[in-house]
């Protein structure tokens, strides 16, 4: 090979390396793309129907074109790595994102043929209908009784004291807390254990008669026993409500839910029966995540 040939070959090789580097750089800086969801996103007679839901935080496209139904009397688990958009999507369901400056939501979320994002929708009754339980229990600095009575009172749900009393008792019973607090209802809610406080928050949510309960990592601050009690409760609550739970615990999602949705970089990647998702997921991204191969 002549010197000229060698130089030409070296230049060619450099060009190829440069092209590859430019390609790599492009793939690194490219924004995440919208992906098709694998699995059946629709259910028969849904309680909530989401069509092409997008969430933007300023320029950032945090949730991309999510289509998903929430069934009646089902627990659906949202899983995915931090920052994948699952909690952001959850907050769309009761318009909690409205409170975040610079956040914009597009698409339709139907409850009873009514788009909750439509103009003129009052978010106060919406948030009673779609209740929310947060990661850390956040009881009001009031008595146990007042914590539960507060919601029905401000929403004007009770016509007299007896009705309010019944709502408080029923809610505490459904939240599985009645037997533990019935003799100390006047004591502060903040004096309860972490697990009891979380059940008090669930009782507070139930008291205003929701149809959907959103739970954002409701057990992450609880010990395994308190977690087991809440998980058992979630299964009982399913008889009355639709429940959407965001969790980082794969085992919890597998234990409590009937359907599971996997989010990745703002996309709903896969949705399906929980057993199928945890034994034989279709999408490689789902499998990599739930088997701990997520890089």
């Amino acid at each position: 090979m002549s010197s000229v040939d060698m130089i030409e070959k070296a230049v060619q090789s450099e060009r190829t390396s440069f092209r590859q580097a430019a390609k790599d750089m492009d793939s690194l800086t490219r924004r995440p793309e919208q992906r098709e969801t694998v699995g059946e996103v629709r259910v028969e007679d849904p309680r909530v129907r989401c069509n092409d839901v997008n969430v933007y935080y300023g320029e950032k496209h945090a949730v991309m074109g999510v289509n998903l139904d929430i069934g009646r009397n089902e627990v659906i688990a949202m899983i995915g790595p931090s920052g994948c958009g699952k909690s952001t999507f959850l907050r769309c369901l009761n318009r909690m994102n409205d409170t975040i400056v610079g956040c914009r939501v597009t698409g339709q979320i139907f409850m009873d043929d009514q788009d909750i994002n439509a103009s003129g929708i009052d978010v106060v009754p919406l948030r009673a209908m779609v209740g929310m339980v947060f990661q850390k229990p956040n009881p009001f600095p009031k008595s146990i009784w007042e914590n539960v009575a507060f919601g029905p009172r401000i929403h004007g749900l009770a016509h007299n004291k007896a009705e309010l009393e019944e709502m408080v008792v029923t809610s505490l019973q459904r939240a599985g807390l009645w037997e533990e607090v019935k003799d100390r209802l006047e004591q502060p809610g903040t004096g309860l254990s972490g697990g009891q406080q979380q059940r008090l928050c669930i009782a507070r949510t139930i008291a205003v008669g929701p149809e959907v309960i959103l739970m954002d990592e409701p057990c992450s601050a609880l010990d395994p026993i308190a977690t087991a009690v809440i998980e058992d409760l979630i299964d009982e609550l399913r008889g009355h409500y639709s429940i959407v739970i965001v969790t980082h615990s794969m085992q919890q999602a597998a234990r409590v839910s009937q359907r599971t949705a996997y989010f990745h970089l703002g996309n709903l990647i896969e949705v399906g029966e929980t057993t199928q998702i945890f034994t034989n997921p279709v999408h490689k991204l789902t499998e990599d995540y739930i088997t701990g191969r997520f890089g």
């Binding site: 945890f278 034994t279 789902t286 088997t291």
Partner: peptide, 9 residues
């Protein structure tokens, strides 16, 4: 390890 999916199979 509480294995799932491929690992469980």
């Amino acid at each position: 390890r509480a294995p799932l999916a491929l690992d469980l199979r």
